[in-house]
Simulated assay, not measured.
Amino acid sequence: MNKWIELCMTKRGTSLTNPFGPEVDVMKVGTKMYALFSTDGAPTVSLKCEPFRADSLREQYPEIKPGYHLNKKHWNTVSLDGNLTDEEIEAMIDHSYDLVILSMTKNERSNIGT
């Protein structure tokens, strides 16, 4: 298991699933996706992102592209090739998780203990 999946697994209510096949590890909080790790080819992670921030990150970093096979307004696909710092990647994972938590109903948040 890579260090980013291990980080995700420390977040309350997170589960690891493979609904798109073994080459994509999908991290969910409750029933909602917040990180998709691709092991097919160069390693990447797709993360939910606030639209203005998503655009800003894409302008700043060539390693960050619009979400692959996802809503490009709300998702970024990030290359895990070593050019971004661990802190930058961790902040993007945290932001994605937090956005998904905020989109949940009170009952859904209660079910995962937040």
Rank of each mutant, 00 (worst) to 15 (best):
M1K: 12
M1I: 12
K3W: 10
W4N: 00
W4C: 02
I5E: 06
E6W: 12
E6S: 15
E6Y: 11
C8D: 03
C8A: 11
M9N: 06
T10H: 07
K11G: 05
K11M: 13
K11R: 08
R12P: 02
R12V: 13
G13T: 00
T14Q: 04
T14D: 10
F20E: 01
G21W: 04
P22A: 15
E23Q: 09
V26E: 03
V29S: 00
G30N: 00
T31S: 14
K32Y: 08
M33A: 06
A35Q: 01
A35K: 03
S38L: 07
S38D: 08
T39Y: 15
D40L: 13
D40Y: 12
G41C: 02
P43Q: 07
P43D: 01
V45F: 08
L47H: 01
L47W: 01
K48Q: 03
K48N: 09
P51K: 04
R53S: 14
D55Y: 06
D55M: 13
D55R: 07
D55N: 14
L57E: 02
E59H: 11
E59Y: 12
E59G: 15
Q60T: 13
Q60C: 14
Y61I: 14
P62E: 13
E63H: 07
E63K: 11
I64S: 01
G67V: 11
Y68H: 12
Y68G: 05
Y68R: 10
H69N: 10
L70Q: 11
K72G: 06
K73I: 12
K73N: 14
H74N: 14
H74I: 05
N76I: 06
S79K: 11
L80V: 04
L80R: 00
D81T: 11
D81N: 11
D81M: 09
D81F: 06
G82R: 04
L84A: 02
D86K: 10
E88S: 15
E90W: 03
M92V: 03
I93Q: 00
I93K: 00
D94A: 11
H95Y: 05
S96H: 02
Y97K: 02
Y97W: 07
L99V: 06
V100F: 08
V100H: 00
S103G: 15
M104H: 07
M104C: 07
T105S: 13
R109K: 14
R109V: 03
S110M: 12
N111W: 05
I112C: 09
